[in-house]
Structure formats: structure tokens, C-alpha cells
Simulated scan of single mutants.
Amino acid sequence: MSGYRLTAVETVLEEGSWAFTAREGDADREVVLVPCADESDGWGDEVDSGGGQPVRAWINRCTHEAQRLHREGVGAVTRGGSVVCPKHGSAFDACEGSCDNGEAAGTTLRSIDIEVRDGAVFLTDDDLTYLYEGLPDDDGDADGPASSSHLTF
């Protein structure tokens, strides 16, 4: 078993999301970890209905306009087992990454390979090299997007 230890599962479950930056080829990639659990079980359960991993990892961008899903100091907006884009309100299934509503309907978030072992989350994606916890603050959206969603949080 190999991989870079990222954080504890408990941290992701308690905070609702956790982000890190990794290198892929010549580019940096933002990745967000989110809880994955059957809605009836709630976010905090150790086993979900989608294969036993309580956490999933996704590239930290909405498929519609490359809007960050997780922002520093805010985290990711989650509702009913979905990660919600803060700009247009598209909701991505936290376990599957698929979206069936809003501007991003019919798309799926890009998954990142992780493993959960002994209560910790490990980066196991051969294409990525861990750089640091958190996100770069260079894309100018520190105050968040101007929402055009009909959803309120």
C-alpha cells in the first residue's frame, strides 16, 4: 500500500470538505475531498452505499464555468448528499460526481484516486503529486462568485 497521507477522515466529515493542491505534469490542480454517505445515513457514517469509502476526491471546479466548489475559509456548500456550485447552483452527487440539474446538468466532476485506510485519506492517483494543503489564492475569487442561482444558503 502506498500513497501520500492527506488528512483524517474525521477532519473531512467534521469540516464538510477539505482541499489540497497537487501537481499534474506542468500544471497545479486543486482537489477537494467531500464526505460520501447514503443520505439516510447522514454525512458522518464510515460506510456509504457506493463502495465503502466515506470520502471522495474531485477536481475542485464546477464543470460549467470552472468555478471553485471549495473556497478557503468557506469550504464546499453541501446539501442532501450533493456538492453545490456556489455560482449557478448545480448540484453534484458527492459520491458519484454526476450532475442532473442546472447549468452543469449531464456532466460529471473529474475524480481523483484516493484510499481510506485506518481512518486516514491517502492520495493514490499516479498522475498527481501532492504539493500542499489548501488552495492557491491567485485566481481573484476571494470574495466568492456573483451567484445567479435561485438557491439560497
Rank of each mutant, 00 (worst) to 15 (best):
A27S: 13
S90E: 03
R117L: 02
V83N: 13
I59S: 01
G42M: 07
G52C: 11
E96W: 08
V83Y: 13
G80F: 14
G106E: 13
P86F: 06
E24A: 15
K87E: 09
F122V: 03
G81K: 10
E96F: 07
K87Y: 11
D48L: 00
Q53A: 13
V116R: 08
G97D: 11
E72L: 01
S40W: 09
V121G: 01
R71S: 07
G50K: 04
K87C: 12
R79W: 13
G25W: 13
T108N: 14
G73S: 04
R79E: 12
A27N: 12
P86K: 14
C36L: 00
Q67C: 09
D38C: 06
C36Y: 01
I112Q: 15
C62D: 08
G119Y: 06
S98P: 00
C62M: 10
L123N: 04
R23A: 14
E72S: 02
E103W: 03
A22S: 11
L123V: 02
E39F: 02
C99Y: 13
L123Y: 12
T124W: 04
H88T: 01
G97K: 10
V34G: 02
D26A: 15
C99W: 12
V74H: 06
N101W: 06
G42A: 08
D28C: 12
R79D: 10
W58S: 04
A91D: 12
L33H: 06
E115A: 15
I114F: 10
C85G: 06
D38R: 08
S111R: 15
D118K: 12
F92V: 02
V55T: 11
I59F: 13
G25E: 14
V116C: 11
G89D: 05
C62V: 08
D100L: 00
E103L: 09
H88P: 00
N60E: 13
E96A: 14
G102V: 00
G97Q: 13
G44I: 00
S49G: 12
Q67N: 15
G73K: 06
D41T: 01
A105D: 15
A120L: 00
E46H: 04
E115F: 11
C36V: 11
I59N: 01
V34W: 07
V34D: 03
T107D: 09
T78E: 03
E30T: 10
G80D: 15
S40V: 07
T78A: 05
C36H: 00
D41K: 11
S111G: 15
G81Q: 12
R117G: 08
V55I: 10
L69K: 14
S49A: 10
L123S: 07
G52I: 00
A22Q: 07
D100A: 07
S82F: 15
S82G: 05
R61I: 00
Q53P: 01
D125K: 10
T108A: 15
T63S: 15
E65Y: 00
E39V: 12
V74T: 06
T21C: 02
E103I: 05
L109V: 02
V83W: 14
I114K: 05
P86M: 05
G73H: 04
G97H: 05
G25L: 13
R117H: 09
A57T: 09
G119L: 01
D26P: 09
D93H: 10
G102H: 04
D38K: 07
V83G: 11
E115R: 15
E65M: 10
D41G: 09
H70Y: 15
D48S: 13
E30W: 08
R56L: 06
D45C: 02
E24Y: 07
